[in-house]
Design a protein around this nucleic acid. Sequence first.
DNA 1: GCCGTTTTCGGCCCGACTGTTTTCAGTCG
Length: 586
Amino acid sequence: MSITNNELAELLKEIHTLKLLDGQNPFRARAFDRAAQKIESMEEKIATYISEERLTDISGIGEGIAGEIYAYSETGTTPELDELRERIPPELTEWLNISGLGPKTIYKIHHELGITTIQELKQSCQDGSLVDIEGFGKKSAEKILRSIEWMEQFSERCLLSEALDIARPLYQFIEDLEGVEKLELAGSLRRSRETIGDIDILVEADQQHAESIMDAFVNHDFAVEILGHGATKSSMRTEDGRQVDLRLVQPDQFAAALMYFTGSKEHNVVMRQRARDRGYSLNEYGLFKMDEEGNVQEDQPLSYENESDIYQHLDLNWVPPEHREDYGEFTYYEEHKSMELVEPSDIQGVLHAHSTWSDGKFSIKQMAEACRERGYHYLGITDHSQTAAYAGGLNPDEVKRQWEEIDQLNATYREQDIDFKIFKGIESDILSDGSLDYPDELLEGFDFVIASVHSGLGMDPSKMLDRYQKTIEHPATRIIGHPTGRLLLQREGNKVDINRIIEWAVEHHTAIEINANPRRLDLDWRYGNKARDEGLMSAICPDAHTTDGIDDIQYGTLIARKAKFGPERILNTQSADELEDWFRED
DNA sequence: GCCGTTTTCGGCCCGACTGTTTTCAGTCG
């Protein structure tokens, strides 16, 4: 079994972390992190580079890191890693999750007090031994204790949907404050990441209003703890443990600041480097010329009005925020003006929804009406198949009765001249050998079949791949449901080779859904480049079990954009007639 | 450790905020 890109990236990241904790030169450590980032975002298989012994062709990988990788591919470890693992207690890496503690501090505490566990760290804060270390005071101890408490109580990140629930009301609150000229959500939220750490809000306002705006922010009802309160930056924590940062900038700084605080960190690093290569310096206040000695000429800002102008100065077209991950956007937007991306208004109908026939909470009619209220033109009902007993899966008899009900509902819509159609679908379990959950004769009676794995999720990835191959080759399969089965912040998905599945899916006229449930968002956007190159079709599927669940389509649409899908590659942007044709094609 | 139509050595993104300091190091994004 050859090494996957993700596996190797994880390894390099571990070396990066351990080197930092070991107090090694941070630049040397960062080289491993950069190599990891590079390998993670590469479309080509790293295994090919290894077998052809041309790892150093990859920018960011030199002789040193290449040597580590070759050693790892042969022995499953590297001398350097072994040594680091021996020297750095694994518990110490957990300390990095404590907000406010970085590698330097951890290194110092660990060495001065000889402690390794978070429990011991807690103890040292309480009994005062921490304060004996030079550079640590009472406040440090209190801060560390508080951070540990937060960490234990809440997870480090939250779902995109949860972050939006906090950010939207705050946005409205700040928008109405006196002196606020412009306002944008920034950070990972603006980039539509599937999980969010901090919520970043950027405000443009005159200096004279800065104080009152910051005061209002830290005194908002949402704030249960104030983490920082300055003239241009304030931070608070909400009761669900989320940190919200508010940044305030002057009018002529907004575009550069927005770009800067939108990130990602990796995208910004490349942007800054591009600026330097062109004799400029880019920071959150603007893009400036540099003199011969490399000093920033702050009195010589380049003129720009918006993000797009800044990108132009660096020989790039505007990069949509959701693509700023250093995942191939620089090569694309150097050459292309823009990329057409699916919009919420493109969505014509709903595929993948459950009803009371299986584990849904509403009848088919109620689900259909909820779709109509939202302006959609069709609903593809996909209850669970018979093997999914836990979810009330339908036996063949029930399937036929459900079809009758759907026929009747459709007849009623036609009689009343209502432009709405219900498709007969099923979410068929993929059985452990890759076959579907009904005999072929029955499967042919559905308008479309979504095939999903619900059992044996932990199966060996190579076996899982065989399972998927058989499913995709089945002529009835039209959509693959939540391909990895991941539950964000809860359960890791199967590490099956999604790239291969994408290739097969394209070959066999099968789409792979973007499951829009905020806990899934699976297909992962990281496969967007591959999907685009291959011409993969997808569908933005709410997997709705309630009428409200239909609204999850909004999250799926955000991820579809991040995954570089235009409307032409999303099935449910098509009309009911077009979709019917697509389902029927071989 | 990596990299170079300024460099094979000397840089590596950079500024706000905090705490413990009397001038700065560490963290964060």
